[in-house]
Design a protein around this nucleic acid. Structure first.
Length: 251
DNA sequence: AATCAAGGCAACCGCATTTAG
DNA sequence: ACTAAATGCGGTTGCCTTGAT
């Protein structure tokens, strides 16, 4: 029946961390490295749950964290990534060096949401709030990477989406549907974009990945849309025929 | 100066996923 | 292959700070 607690709650501190606890945790991780969070509190002499130690380290004590206000560029990047990934905070954080998922999540909920609402944009769908027609029915243009909530019909939720991908026109990436693709969508190369008379930023550059080897607009590096073996292109760091968003993480 | 409300953020909780035995 | 433990993640809560009255 359920799982056993990760630690003995009766003997663990809760609430805000003290300076002394922080120092102990930092000293222990400096000496032994990260990992084995369950046994860490005891070994470090902390009366804390392992999960609590991990959270404290990842969100506040890590030396590579960037504290302070978000820049405009970071704002824009978060909005773009959220439109693509939804509430996948860890994936979004992976594209913002020095920022944590918790920090970005809080920032989204307290600042960006309000900013978008004030601009008349729905922070969930990234569409204009007045655009009733788009929300009236579940069209295949809804961004719903994380869930099938855009599919109103329960039966539809059980079906994998296998229809072909329509490549984004201009910068309409908000119209991507990334739900449960069986095969990778055909990504427009620099050549096809040129043939179409499109000189706008490619998908990756638009997301702020100018240095991505996947850049196909000339703003970054031009690459072929498939590898030498003719396999699928590297979609956001995913070289596969199965779309697994976890590969977006920066290891 | 005191009180209240809203905003902001750190931390916790519970579920999902991954890993190890 | 199966199961339990460990870890990771996203949602939520609660406390502290700040600004308005």
């Amino acid at each position: 029946m359920g799982r056993s607690p990760c630690c003995e709650k009766a003997h663990t501190n809760k609430g805000a961390w003290t300076k002394e606890e922080d120092d102990r945790l930092i000293a222990y991780i400096k000496a032994h490295g990260e990992g084995c969070w369950r046994s860490l509190p005891k070994a470090a002499g902390l009366l804390r749950c392992g999960k609590s130690c991990r959270l404290r380290w990842i969100n506040y004590l890590r030396p590579d964290l960037k504290r302070g206000n978000f820049t405009q560029h970071e704002d824009d990047l978060i909005i773009k990534l959220h439109s693509l990934l939804g509430n996948r905070w860890s994936l979004i954080a992976g594209r913002l060096p020095g920022r944590t998922d918790n920090e970005i999540k809080n920032y989204w909920n307290t600042h960006i949401k309000r900013k978008l609402l004030s601009r008349g944009i729905d922070p969930t769908t990234h569409r204009p709030i007045t655009d009733v027609s788009s929300s009236a029915k579940p069209v295949a243009t809804t961004i719903s990477f994380a869930s099938n909530s855009a599919l109103e019909d329960q039966e539809d939720r059980k079906k994998p989406i296998i229809n072909n991908f329509s490549p984004p026109k201009d910068e309409g990436f908000l119209d991507l549907n990334l739900d449960l693709r069986i095969s990778p969508p055909p990504y427009p190369t620099a050549v096809t974009m040129k043939n179409e008379g499109r000189n706008s930023l490619c998908f990756f550059c638009s997301l702020g990945f100018e240095n991505s080897k996947n850049c196909s607009c000339g703003n970054g590096k031009i690459i072929a849309s498939s590898d030498s073996n003719g396999n699928g292109y590297d979609f956001l760091g995913l070289k596969s025929c199965v779309l697994d968003c976890r590969s977006l993480e920066i290891k």
